[in-house]
């Protein structure tokens, strides 16, 4: 009788996903499409920020939006009304998107005639940070009511992001939110993190955020 043998695998659980994400990025490069993975807590104003961003960029860039949600298409409908192509991705109960699900979404939305695709990830500061979706850049939104201590409580997401949007600055007078502290804590986790305080409601600060994004899209799509 043959006996069981030990086979060394020595691989991170995320290794397959990381390889798939790399393939997604290569396809995006070929199609000259920039993918932004946008993460945040529920209720941070992600969809409102996205609508502001679309309004600011839609004359310069052909934009698509993929809305990820556990279940529902409320956000996709709202975004479609802004006049950009949008689809809803249902994660079927999963708390995050991975590269495989992102790839399916990109195929469905069709990237060949889009300059920028925004992936609105599931509202959650923990799980989405663990999985590379294949996005070119990662950004997160933190809103003033959530508090300035979030970089200490959820360090990983601040480490993997390239940009941090601090939303709802119009309500700063009503909260004990210390802008200097949040910048200090966030840079402690990630010195390269670009930080944009905005109010998606009033439009304050949105230009600086959109200029950053416009620059990233241009650099990616022009690079050989």
């Amino acid at each position: 009788m043959e006996s069981y043998k030990i086979i060394e695998v020595k691989e991170s659980v995320f290794a397959n996903n990381d390889r798939e994400a790399e393939r997604v990025r290569q396809d995006l490069k070929r199609d000259k499409t920039f993918l932004l993975n946008l993460m945040s807590s529920p209720g941070s104003g992600k969809t409102t920020t996205l609508l502001r961003t679309i309004e600011n960029l839609k004359d310069d860039l052909r934009i698509g939006v993929m809305e990820a949600d556990v279940d529902s298409d409320v956000d996709a409908k709202t975004v479609a009304q802004a006049g950009v192509r949008s689809i809803q991705l249902h994660t079927g109960g999963m708390c995050h998107l991975d590269a495989g699900m992102t790839e399916q979404g990109l195929r469905e939305i069709g990237t060949s005639d889009l300059d920028l695709v925004v992936l609105e990830n599931v509202g959650n500061l923990v799980c989405p940070a663990e999985f590379d979706t294949g996005a070119v850049k990662n950004a997160m939104i933190l809103s003033v009511p959530e508090g300035h201590d979030k970089p200490l409580k959820y360090p990983l997401i601040f480490t993997v992001c390239d940009a941090l949007v601090i939303n709802k600055i119009d309500v700063l007078p009503y909260f004990d939110f210390d802008m200097e502290k949040v910048v200090e804590y966030a840079h402690m986790r990630n010195p390269k993190l670009e930080i944009f305080p905005i109010s998606a409601k009033t439009g304050e600060g949105v230009d600086a955020w959109c200029d950053w994004l416009r620059r990233q899209v241009r650099d990616w799509n022009e690079a050989k």
Partner: peptide, 28 residues
């Protein structure tokens, strides 16, 4: 936790302990 027990610094980072690796399998 996050604050160094020796010098009280907050400038600290994790060097190990975030892994999820498949080490080995027993198979036929």
């Amino acid at each position: 936790g996050r604050i160094c027990p020796r010098c009280g610094s907050e400038n600290t980072w994790l060097i190990r302990g975030n892994e999820i690796n498949i080490k080995e399998i027993e198979a036929i």
